[in-house]
Design a protein around this nucleic acid. Structure first.
Lengths: 344, 344
DNA sequence: ATGAAAGCGCTAACAA
DNA sequence: TTGTTAGCGCTTTCAT
């Protein structure tokens, strides 16, 4: 079907190996021959066959992208497309291709990753999440397959290159926004407790409270995948406490938007009755009402950095383990207001 | 590095071709041999090399997924992850892998697609959008490369298999919701006019108005990629008209949420002052305030159907062109109310 | 600076 | 039912 290297060789009156060298832009081919060969390639409409090349090379120019199993609706979160944009900006520039994991359940995702690895489909893998005891990560780690984590690996942190934000500090800082505004009853709403990002953000929240001499109330920490049915009840419970919170630290903008709605059902307004801060600065958080005070974690940049690290690692296994912390910054918007005002 | 078919052959005391046949589960291998070979594969930890297989086979078990250039923020739209879920549910089940296009600009996306095609990386391609004069589509069409469109191709409709909703009818029906509620000044807010989906939905809107004997006002049709800066102005203009609309048909839930916010800036409430209907039924539309009356187009199903068609086509080029219409249904929620109430 | 030839791991005639 | 052999298209020594 296709034009092969041989056809080009014939047309340019050289050996196939020469054509191959021209392809690689080898320095030991005369400029003249290169020109001739290149012209032949153009004329015949030649395009190298990636599979053949991978086979001879044992290197695909591709890497795999693994997201959490799509069963949980986390995927609905714009985090994913945005990080993908970052990744592909680098991938495209360096002529790498992207493979993407499939699978609804954890098992299926693992299978899918194994196919990538064993089948030699990719030279490296990007993990778009980090959770405790993750089988995909363990698998990759044990096989010593090149991979990078976006987020903080909970094990072998020093031997797994990863790209992350300083979530603890960010969370502390944004919690302090609430404290500075005079809030004294501040609750935390997180998602899946197995996700390291949840753990870190909760930690920052706790640190902030402690440093201000505030108590950590057990019942002020709620974990719920709010997109599922349980979320609504959890929020209702929280606000049925004798001393309901006036400030909320929520791990994700999307969750915040949901919570705002739930609060309204309870007759509470944001920020009048409750102030909310959250994370990610998804586009929506600017558009929502009220617009959300949130931590911009620079998702796009997380993707770019991770892709860079991975490519580096794929090209040279011996590159040392890295830990890249992408800076965050806080967007002050309208979901927060001083507690004093509330009391007036 | 890896265990090859030869190693397995040696271990099982058969010829490599036998192993290959076992891999394909050929019917002309004795159950006994199969068992022996399979055991050897297990013991040695054998996994086939996909590249070698593709090369010998001229068939990768993969297909490419092309989205609009990520430059426009359309990607932030949950449509993408959701359709991807649908696609991968089928892909995984049938052991197909997914390749994903990269590129910020239209040029880059085309390049990326050409790499997929020419490089033999994929056996078929799924186009996740449809726009007029799309170079990617033209390229695929001219090369007679197997591909499926999600949406309605604007050219060669009868020779390109596609999966779509009946957007015209859906739009007509949802516009009628507004008309039935007594609204008489109904405007349309669409996105990129090059997208066929925008065109269809606008058409349905127009039909509904006409059939009710209402006038089509030029100034009642706004096209704006609201995520960009111009959106706000466009909406403001619309409501600064001498006779501002009381009903809005908006092509996308995400846009609706933005518009709700903008209206609020103008001192208008939804649905009290303005009723809104839109499309897609993204998860957010249930959570937003007000929750959105919208057309559920079954994004997940669009993905599944498209993936099925593509695989069918990849396996048998001669399968006839198809046109699959995924049914929609309308979710009545709180962004609409009767015009009469407004007048009280 | 270029060519010849072996081989990457697998499949698919063709034989047996 | 199984083995032999010749590629798939490219890269890469090793010669020249």
């Amino acid at each position: 079907m296709g034009v092969t290297i041989k056809d080009v060789a014939k047309a340019a009156n050289v050996a196939p190996s020469t054509v191959s060298r021209v392809l690689a832009d080898s320095s030991r081919i005369s400029a003249d021959t290169k020109k001739r060969v290149r012209r032949a390639m153009k004329e015949l409409g030649y395009h190298p066959n990636v599979n053949a090349r991978s086979l001879a090379n044992r290197s695909t120019q591709a890497f795999g992208i693994v997201m959490k199993s799509s069963a949980d609706k986390a995927l609905q979160n714009p985090f994913f497309p945005e990080v993908l944009r970052g990744i592909s900006s680098i991938a495209h520039q360096l002529d790498y291709s992207l493979y993407i994991s499939t699978g609804e359940t954890e098992d299926e995702v693992l299978e899918s990753v194994q196919r990538m690895v064993y089948g030699n489909r990719v030279d490296g893998i990007l993990l778009l999440y980090s959770m405790v005891n993750d089988r995909v990560m363990n698998f990759l780690f044990e096989r010593k397959f090149p991979f990078i984590v976006i987020g903080k690996p909970c094990e072998h942190m020093d031997s797994i290159t990863h790209v992350d934000n300083d979530n603890v500090t960010a969370s502390k800082e944004i919690t302090n926004r609430l404290i500075d505004l005079g809030h004294e009853r501040i609750a935390f709403i997180g998602g899946d407790e197995d996700l390291v990002v949840t753990v870190d953000r909760k930690r920052g929240y706790q640190l902030a409270l402690q440093e201000s001499g505030m108590l950590l109330l057990e019942e002020y920490s709620v974990h719920t995948e709010f997109l599922k049915s349980g979320g609504r009840e959890a929020v209702h419970e929280l606000f049925n406490l004798p001393d309901p919170p006036t400030g909320l630290v929520i791990v994700d903008d999307l969750m915040s938007i949901g919570v705002v709605t739930m609060l309204e059902e309870l007759g509470k307004q944001v920020p009048r009755d409750v102030s909310i801060v959250s994370f990610n600065n998804i586009h929506m958080s600017e558009i929502a009402r009220p617009s959300l005070t949130t931590v911009d974690i620079h998702i796009y940049e997380l993707g770019r950095q991770a892709a860079k690290c991975l490519i580096e690692k794929m090209q040279d296994e011996s590159v040392p383990t890295k830990r890249i912390i992408v800076p965050y910054n806080i967007k002050d918007r309208q979901s927060t207001q001083a507690r004093e005002e509330t009391l007036l």
